[in-house]
Amino acid sequence: MEIKPLIDYPREAVDRLLNVIHLFRDIRATSEWQYDVLLKRSRLLSLEPGEQLLRAGDVDQWVFFLLRGELQVQVEAASQGDGSSGERTLAVIRPGELFGDLSMLLAEPRSANVFAAHNSRETQVLGLDCTLFGDLEDFSLLQLPAKLTFYRNMVHSLRWKLEVYRSKYPAHQLADSHRKLKLYTGPKNCRQELTALAAQARALARILLDWNAEFGSGELIDDESDMLGFLESMLS
């Protein structure tokens, strides 16, 4: 696996790449220098077919965006009658998807292994070190507006994925769980909102983890997938 800091690439190409990822685009619109902080904490990972990206049991604070190729999420399969066991595919991650957020938000070990698909000739992943966002009281590197943007994006992404599950399994006992969570209605753009958004993101992550454990994350693809129109030559 080749790992390169994002700042090693031409800035113009990086800006075009990140402009189609909501989180980076929104923070850049808030503050150019806060956007620069994110660039310094981001890296581009290139994987060979079948190469492992994430390992079950690992603990870290990285969140990822798949830019090119395909990834497979695998978990250990139940033991067979002969005592053997193996891996089963829980989900397929396709370009445009955000992943790794559940472990980051819940501060828990990763629950699955993630590999580059064997049929993916080239797999590229953008990784962001989210230790920047973990301490809600620390504004030494990222200020309040940037942290609010991050958690608003997390809440939006999680609710979208939960709505996809709800549309597929409307009669399931988890179907309305996320809709029962109280939305924040207090003052905007303040620490109170940040605290509420972070708590809401963690609650949504827990619900999504329950869905994934039962069904796998399926074919959840968000609207960032249309980035692929010009990614083919972006960072070559």
Score class of each variant (00 low, 15 high):
residue 35 Y to I: 06
residue 186 G to N: 05
residue 149 T to E: 12
residue 95 P to C: 10
residue 54 L to G: 00
residue 55 R to E: 12
residue 50 G to N: 10
residue 59 V to F: 11
residue 201 A to C: 11
residue 125 V to T: 05
residue 132 L to K: 08
residue 230 F to W: 10
residue 127 G to T: 09
residue 25 R to P: 00
residue 48 E to M: 12
residue 142 L to A: 04
residue 166 R to V: 02
residue 100 G to F: 07
residue 3 I to F: 05
residue 34 Q to M: 11
residue 83 G to R: 03
residue 63 V to N: 01
residue 208 L to C: 01
residue 167 S to R: 15
residue 122 E to C: 03
residue 118 H to L: 15
residue 207 I to C: 04
residue 150 F to H: 01
residue 182 K to N: 13
residue 42 S to E: 07
residue 183 L to Y: 04
residue 167 S to Q: 15
residue 175 A to Y: 07
residue 114 V to R: 06
residue 139 F to P: 00
residue 104 M to W: 14
residue 133 F to D: 07
residue 81 G to F: 09
residue 209 L to T: 10
residue 124 Q to Y: 06
residue 58 D to F: 06
residue 133 F to G: 05
residue 94 R to I: 07
residue 54 L to T: 02
residue 88 R to F: 15
residue 214 E to N: 07
residue 232 E to T: 05
residue 155 V to H: 02
residue 142 L to R: 06
residue 190 C to T: 13
residue 139 F to R: 07
residue 196 A to Q: 11
residue 109 P to F: 11
residue 140 S to R: 14
residue 160 W to I: 00
residue 92 V to S: 11
residue 65 F to A: 04
residue 137 E to M: 13
residue 229 G to W: 09
residue 171 A to D: 14
residue 203 A to D: 12
residue 75 V to Q: 12
residue 140 S to F: 01
residue 171 A to I: 03
residue 106 L to H: 03
residue 219 E to W: 15
residue 191 R to C: 10
residue 65 F to D: 02
residue 126 L to H: 04
residue 66 L to R: 07
residue 104 M to D: 02
residue 122 E to K: 14
residue 234 M to G: 03
residue 31 S to Q: 06
residue 196 A to T: 09
residue 37 V to F: 01
residue 122 E to I: 07
residue 30 T to P: 00
residue 49 P to A: 07
residue 55 R to F: 10
residue 77 A to G: 12
residue 103 S to T: 08
residue 98 L to M: 13
residue 220 L to C: 10
residue 177 S to W: 09
residue 42 S to Q: 05
residue 52 Q to P: 02
residue 193 E to M: 10
residue 206 R to Q: 13
residue 168 K to F: 03
residue 99 F to I: 10
residue 217 S to K: 13
residue 80 Q to Y: 06
residue 146 A to E: 14
residue 84 S to F: 04
residue 48 E to H: 09
residue 81 G to N: 12
residue 188 K to S: 13
residue 114 V to M: 08
residue 13 A to V: 02
residue 37 V to L: 02
residue 149 T to K: 08
residue 46 S to R: 15
residue 69 G to V: 12
residue 13 A to F: 07
residue 210 D to G: 04
residue 117 A to P: 11
residue 156 H to T: 09
residue 172 H to A: 12
residue 232 E to P: 00
residue 202 R to P: 01
residue 234 M to T: 09
residue 107 A to I: 02
residue 217 S to Q: 14
residue 101 D to Y: 03
residue 134 G to F: 08
residue 31 S to Y: 06
residue 68 R to C: 06
residue 192 Q to N: 11
residue 42 S to H: 04
residue 41 R to N: 12
residue 47 L to R: 07
residue 130 C to R: 03
residue 193 E to C: 07
residue 23 L to I: 14
residue 117 A to F: 08
residue 131 T to D: 13
residue 219 E to S: 08
residue 156 H to R: 15
residue 144 L to I: 13
residue 166 R to S: 04
residue 13 A to E: 08
residue 230 F to L: 09
residue 38 L to G: 01
residue 198 A to G: 03
residue 188 K to T: 13
residue 163 E to V: 04
residue 52 Q to T: 12
residue 206 R to L: 10
residue 146 A to P: 02
residue 236 S to P: 11
residue 229 G to Q: 10
residue 162 L to S: 01
residue 52 Q to I: 08
